[in-house]
Simulated scan of single mutants.
Amino acid sequence: MSETGTLRRRFELIGVGLTAALAIAMIGLLAVDALRAYPVAGGLYEQARIAGWWLDHALGTNVFYHPFMWRSIATGILIGVVAPLVGTYLVHREMALIGETLAHTAFAGVAVGLLVSSTTGWNGSLMLVALVVGILGALSVQWLAERTDTYGDVPIAIMLTGSFAVGTLVISYGRGMSGINIEGYIFGDITVVTPSGAQLMAVISVLVVAVVVVTYKQLLFITFDEQAARVARLNVTWYNTLLIVMTAVVVVGAMQILGVILVAAMLVVPVAAATQIAHSFRETLLLSILFGQVSVVGGFAFSISQELPTGGSIVVVAIACYLLAILVSSRSTAAISTH
């Protein structure tokens, strides 16, 4: 390996190490927030609020002292890890729009949860309802794709439009009832990140990373040569289902920050940027996570400094990373479809 390649590899490993440390720190912060009623965690919680106050004082902001901002930032950091991680497999399988489809399915779940909450007084987690509906939607897409003779994207289009139609009908039905506020889930809003929603994102992140580590070779096999995987008697249906269910749970978690409309961007854009400069699938995987983190951190910084929506800021930074990757790459913009 050349000296330039060695240096590049070193920077990638440093970036991945820092990202992993940051993600672990965010999970720890969410754990302290969840357990703050207990003495030890309560002391750490107060220390964290003091540290946030000093950080606000140093930066001239009014952000880091508030626990709801911790949850939002922690959720965003974790999204920046798991969304590109799953998205790398989806992009290379030409399934980029599946994230948008499952986001619309989760939207229907949130709508149902809001309606039930407003009519019955139920105080359960809306994200848990969205998670269940999202997984059911993912399994339905998989079932339609395997049981019908239509083109591969037809079941995706049917599920995308059908689930959004169900969501709009439910919202219209409950429009006159109190407690129906769906805009934050459509466009993304850091204020909709509840403690239970942030904790759910932490659990999702740990599970998704663990599953990808354990099944990396199998998912890689079906991504690049599904027919050969079937000949090798790999249970392709099971791994396809696993991938689409992981996508569903990641989409539900990411919907809190990015909203239904923008959630698919974090599955696709960081991966698209990585494919412009990566030399292998493994490197694409690592670089997409790094681009995801740059997008999230940069988006939060831009959003806070300019008082703009966080979801849109994150996506704009991600697209800027993609354009920059094209400029520094010797490949054409068609590299994503051929790499």
Rank of each mutant, 00 (worst) to 15 (best):
T6Y: 08
G17F: 10
T19M: 11
A21L: 14
L22F: 10
L22R: 10
I24N: 08
A25Q: 13
M26Q: 06
G28N: 02
G28Y: 00
A31K: 06
V32E: 02
R36V: 08
V40D: 13
L44D: 09
R49M: 14
W54F: 15
D56F: 09
H57E: 15
G60T: 08
N62G: 12
F64C: 01
R71M: 12
A74E: 05
I77G: 05
P84V: 13
P84D: 14
L90V: 15
E94H: 11
E94F: 07
M95D: 00
E100Y: 07
L102T: 04
A103V: 01
A103Y: 00
V112H: 01
V116H: 06
T120S: 15
W122C: 08
N123G: 13
N123L: 14
S125M: 12
M127W: 02
A130D: 01
L131I: 09
V133R: 04
V133S: 08
A138E: 02
S140W: 13
V141K: 01
V141H: 01
W143H: 09
E146A: 13
R147E: 13
Y151I: 13
G152C: 05
I158A: 09
L160D: 02
A165D: 05
V170E: 01
I171W: 00
S172R: 11
Y173W: 12
M177Y: 14
I180P: 00
G184A: 12
Y185I: 07
F187S: 08
F187E: 09
F187H: 08
G188I: 10
D189T: 10
V193Q: 06
S196Y: 04
A202D: 02
A202W: 00
V203I: 12
V206D: 01
L207W: 04
V209M: 06
V212R: 05
V214G: 05
K217S: 11
L220P: 03
F221G: 10
F224I: 14
A228W: 04
R233G: 06
R233W: 06
N235R: 13
N235V: 09
V236P: 02
V236I: 11
Y239A: 07
M246Q: 04
T247Q: 11
V250A: 07
V252G: 04
M255R: 02
M255I: 10
Q256D: 05
A264N: 06
A264H: 05
M266I: 10
M266S: 03
P270R: 04
P270T: 08
A272N: 12
A278S: 15
H279N: 14
H279A: 14
S280K: 11
L286R: 10
G292R: 02
S295N: 12
V296Q: 03
F300P: 00
F300D: 02
S303H: 05
I304H: 10
S305L: 12
Q306K: 11
A320T: 13
Y322P: 07
Y322W: 15
L323W: 07
L323E: 08
L324H: 12
L327E: 12
S329Y: 01
S329G: 05
S330R: 15
R331M: 15
T333Q: 13
A335G: 13
